[in-house]
Every structure is written in C-alpha cells, then in structure tokens.
Simulated assay, not measured.
Amino acid sequence: MTVVRRGDGPWRLGPRARRWFDAVLATTLVLGSSVMISIGVAALLLSLAQTIPLYLRRVRPATTFTLVAAASVAQAVLGQEPIWGQLAFPVALYSLARYGRPLQGWLGLGTGLAGAATASIVWTRSFNTDVPLEYRGDLEWTSYLPMFLTIGAIVIAAWALGTQSRVRVAYEATLLERGQQLAAEAEQRALMAATDERSRIAREMHDVVAHGLSVVIVQADGARYAAAQDPQVAVDTLGTVAEAGRDALGEMRRLLGLLRGTTDPGLAPQPGLGDLPDLLAAEVETGRVVVHLPDPAPKVSSGVGLTVFRLVQEALTNVRKHAGATATTTVRLRATSGFLEVEVVDDGHGAASGEGSGLGLLGMRERVEVHDGTLVVGPEPGGGWAVRARIPQ
C-alpha cells in the first residue's frame, strides 16, 4: 500500500492504496454480514444488499447510496431490527457527500434524516411489543427521541465529514492551480525584464561602439594628412587607431552576446564613471549616502563605465524601495590589480524584506557577466544588504 504526499499538504493514499482500502473496507462489511444468518435468511440478504454496493462507493457514489438506501427502506418495510448492514449507510452517505455533487450530498442528508426518523419509529415499536398497551405510548416516546437523535447525529456526522473533505480537496486544487499560474506569470515577467534589459543594452551599445569608431575615423584622417610631412606622427596615430579599434571591437563582442532581434538605438550619450558624482550628489546632500570614489576616476572602457553606473543606480533604487527611510548607504569604488571593484552596502532592513530579489537583479548580473566580472548580492552579517561587483578593467 503506497502513501503519497503532494507538496507540503497532508499525507494521502496513492491510487493503488485507495483501491486496496475500498476493497478491504467493503469486504470486511460483507463478511461481517454472515453473522446475520443466526437471526434469519432475510436479515442476511438485507445485510448483503446494503454492504456489497460499497465496492463502487468511490467511482459510483450516487449509485452506491441509492442501492444502500433502497435496502434500508426494505429493511424498514419488513420490520427488521438493526442489523450488521446498517453500518453501510453512513459509509455510503459519506461517499456521496465526498465524491458526488453538492446537490446529491444534500439530498442524501435529507434521505438519511428521514430514514433515521422512520427507523426510530419501527425499532422503538419492535422493542416495546412486550410492554402493556396502556404504558406503551409514553415508553415509545421516551425511547424514540434518544434513538432518533443518535441515528440523526451519525447521519449528520457522515455527511459533514464527506462535505468537508470534498471542499478541502477542491480548495487545495484551487491553490495548486493558482500557484502554478503565479509561477508562470513570474517566469513571464522575468523573461520580459531580461528582454527589456537587453534592448536597453542594445541602445547603449550604439554610443559605446560609435564613440570608438569616431575615434578611429578622426585619427585615421589625421594620420593620412600627417604622413606626408612627419611619418613618425602617422605611426603614433595609427597606434592610437589600433587601440581604439580593439576597444570598440571588444565592447561589440561582449554586448552582442546579449542582443535579441532589432532595436531602436537612442542618440543621447550614455553615462560612465564621470557621471557617478552627479548621480549621487542629491543623496549625499541628504546624508543618506556616503561616497568613496577615486580621484581622478580610473580609465576604463565606455562599456565598463556604463555598467558600473547602471549597477550603482539599480542598487540605490533597491535601497530606496526596501531598506527603509532611515537607512544609510555606502558607495565605494576601487581600482586594484587590473580590476574595478564596486560596493553598495546599506544598514537598513533589506535582509528581512528580500532586497535585491527583484527583476532588476537580472539586468545587473547580465551587465557584469558580459564583461567577465562577478556579482555578489546578499544580506550583511550585522544587518542590511550589500551589492558587490568585480569587473576587469
């Protein structure tokens, strides 16, 4: 017998185990009916008629309940006292409420209560046949009420358990479907964010590459005119041309790896390291940001400068969203051993709110990795949140 667990929900029987459980339950009640032979063949047949339909209780709940209820009516008509097969009725009613439609469950409840009232009358009279007629009325009433309440409580309990189980399973199915829908929506948003970021990078590449090619063209024209009078000037200029060309080619190779489709390049110049003071000026004046920038700024390619600028910009956006109004942020830029190290650390409550887990992190990571750099984002040991990047110059 197998038991399965779906997610973090309750333990449940697997399909094979459910079939075994139904078979064992029905067989136990059917075999138990054999004790009725001691009180008559009619009692045995009625008991079997009530218990045998339970083999179909899960796949045909309405049919099962109808057959069990019909056998119970026959028992009342024949005036039989309580028999073993009576145990099948609450099982059939539970199955109807659990696996049938809601309206069928309500009809089953009404049938069960009506049967409880009828059975209580029949059994009360059969139990009091030896009582003198003048005392029988009062005795039947005092015996009838407890019997009806007991049978009625069993009927209501079976219906309520089946209904509650059906509602719970339907609720869990709704939650599961909603969870799958939210996961699909989150994945779609992530893909859209990545696409938007790549389109933005494509627009930025226009300025990075255009700048390098402009330098190549200007220097090449100058070398051509200078070559006639001073060959050495031409040689130096061609060296500058080669360096600018290699830088532009390297930026193209890095950025083209992220592009998808065509873009509409913007014409405005893209920011770099020299624009960081302007980006941070307003925050520095309020005292919320402490800045440590090298002076003069390190000499890096346009692509690296743009990546650092966007990284700091996105990190500060996350601080404003998640760290809290009183948080203080430290922005540090260092150039060491051929690498540019960027650090944005705040002392707010970003670690508790999941700062840095938004879609903007996708863009930061892609920008850094396209330059063969590394990005580490996470909570600080003493509280707060940190964004650290290391990019080759």
Rank of each mutant, 00 (worst) to 15 (best):
V241F: 00
G261L: 05
A69K: 03
R224H: 12
V233Q: 09
A352F: 11
V344H: 02
P277K: 05
G152N: 01
Q181T: 14
A202G: 08
V300N: 14
S34Q: 09
I154T: 06
I52Y: 05
D207R: 06
E204N: 04
R166H: 08
P277E: 07
A323I: 02
P271H: 11
V155N: 04
A323Y: 00
E283P: 04
L359Y: 01
L48H: 06
D22L: 07
V30G: 12
R168C: 05
A153K: 13
I217H: 05
R224V: 13
E243K: 10
S126A: 10
E369P: 00
Q270V: 14
V216C: 11
T51L: 06
L109A: 01
V77C: 01
A49D: 12
Q393G: 09
V304Q: 15
V4P: 11
P53G: 09
G383C: 12
P265W: 04
P15I: 03
T263F: 11
A183W: 05
T2V: 03
A244M: 03
E355Q: 15
G14H: 08
V209L: 05
S33K: 04
I217D: 10
A352W: 06
S33Q: 04
D130Q: 15
L191K: 02
D295F: 00
T326Q: 15
G115R: 06
Q313E: 15
L31C: 10
L113W: 01
Y225I: 14
I37N: 15
T111W: 12
A117Y: 09
P392A: 07
D278W: 02
H206A: 10
A327D: 00
L46A: 15
A173C: 06
V77P: 10
A282W: 06
V290H: 11
S33C: 13
L13E: 14
L93I: 06
Y55A: 13
D372W: 03
W11R: 10
G324H: 09
P277L: 04
L333W: 02
H322I: 03
R18H: 11
G266C: 05
A325W: 10
I83Q: 08
I154S: 11
L333N: 10
G40Q: 14
R6K: 01
T174M: 09
P277C: 13
Q313N: 05
V155Q: 04
F127L: 14
D372L: 03
P269M: 11
P15D: 02
T195K: 03
A17K: 10
L316G: 15
L280A: 03
G105D: 07
R332G: 07
R198G: 06
M192I: 03
Q80A: 07
F309I: 03
V59G: 12
I201E: 14
I151V: 12
E380K: 10
T66F: 03
G100Q: 04
Y144L: 07
E243N: 10
W385C: 12
I391P: 06
E251Y: 08
V131G: 07
S353M: 09
A325L: 15
P132Y: 10
G110H: 04
W11P: 08
L87I: 02
